[in-house]
């Protein structure tokens, strides 16, 4: 059994997996989250993301010209139109902008590639789990 020597070696090594988010399983996950929010407990850090990682999308509304190319290439149809009222002098002008539903996003960053004004980019943020898929932090305006 060549496996036995390997098993013995592994016994004295540090665990291979990164213990995230807590070193040991908390008795109650909700309790742990509350303790973290209150600053009483700390989250064990996740494995750092590599450069050019594709995480939650960033959107700079002011740069957007409303061309709609991102809507055209989005494979999951996570991007939809929205109209914004912008004050131009005295008049209010309706301008076309987009709204991105992160819960539908498949993180391919195709919209980032096609955007002519570079107003879309991918961040490092990946802790996006939420009970409500339409939560405010999952809709990028």
């Amino acid at each position: 059994m060549p496996a036995i020597t390997e098993v013995w070696k592994v016994l004295f090594k540090r665990p291979f997996t990164n213990r995230f988010p807590a070193k040991y399983a908390p008795r109650s996950v909700h309790g742990f989250v509350r303790r973290v929010q209150a600053g009483k407990a700390k989250i064990a850090p996740p494995v750092p993301t590599p450069p050019n990682f594709r995480g939650k999308i960033n959107y700079e509304v002011d740069k957007c010209i409303g061309c709609g190319l991102c809507i055209r290439v989005c494979p999951t149809k996570a991007i939809v139109w929205r109209t914004v009222e912008v004050e131009q002098g005295e008049k209010k002008v309706a301008k076309k902008k987009v709204k991105i539903f992160v819960s539908r996003c498949c993180f391919c960053s195709q919209c980032v590639d096609i955007c002519p004004k570079d107003c879309l980019s991918m961040s490092d943020e990946f802790l996006l789990a939420n009970e409500d898929k339409l939560a405010n932090e999952l809709i990028v305006l």
């Binding site: 291979f16 590599p50 050019n52 990682f53 594709r54 993180f107 391919c108 960053s109 195709q110």
Partner: peptide
């Protein structure tokens, strides 16, 4: 499966994602 992690990390570094590489 522990050995496999190394190539998954390399894939993530090269393509930006572990699984759906895009």
């Amino acid at each position: 499966w522990a050995l496999r992690e190394e190539i998954m990390d390399a894939i993530e570094y090269v393509t930006g994602n572990r699984v759906t590489k895009g």
